[in-house]
Design a protein around this nucleic acid. Structure first.
Length: 156
DNA sequence: GCCAACGTTGGC
DNA sequence: GCCAACGTTGGC
């Protein structure tokens, strides 16, 4: 038995919001379009049951808006082979796919989103990857302490 | 819309 | 292997 891990995944709500996730078939979506090696490598270590903070970037305000969970391990992202897709990668070959994705399923939305500026003022969270200066990583690990604290904030 | 910070590419 | 140029992210 491996213990659950915790993650944060970013999405621009104008592209795919947590509401879009609730309306998806089985409230599940494949997390395609990740084109950053570090983010990909994190997805490759994900296990079914891992918990995910759903973050709205480029939003007003940017905020953690709810929770999802990982329901598949990583598998090749089909959009890398689709010439018409924005995330098409001509250098990736089907016999050696470069980019992976996982499926995540909606768990719940927070009654009140946790806005980025509030998170920044919270000393318990000061070493969160999300809050590091210049951090752009779209898939990132969250410690269990950060996770517990964030859930408390969301309930409060 | 601006721009700082970051990741990637490619010439050398 | 260095690093300038470029493209992207994402807060503001």
């Amino acid at each position: 038995m491996v213990s659950k891990k915790y993650w944060l995944m970013k999405s621009e709500p104008s592209t795919f919001s947590i509401n879009d996730l609730t309306r998806s078939p089985r409230q599940t979506t494949c997390w395609d379009g990740v084109r950053n090696y570090q983010a990909r490598n994190f997805m490759r270590t994900m296990m079914v049951g891992d918990q995910v903070l759903f973050y709205h970037s480029n939003a007003d305000p940017p905020a953690i808006v709810g929770i999802a969970e990982v329901v598949t391990t990583a598998y090749p992202d089909s959009t890398q082979f689709d010439k018409k897709d924005k995330h098409y990668d001509p250098d990736s070959k089907p016999f050696a796919p470069r980019w992976d994705m996982v499926d995540i399923k909606y768990v719940r939305a927070f009654p009140k989103p946790l806005a980025l500026d509030n998170l920044r003022r919270d000393s318990t969270l000061k070493s969160m990857v999300l809050l590091k200066k210049g951090s752009r990583l779209s898939v990132q690990p969250v410690t269990s302490e950060e996770w517990k604290h964030i859930l408390r904030l969301a309930e409060g």
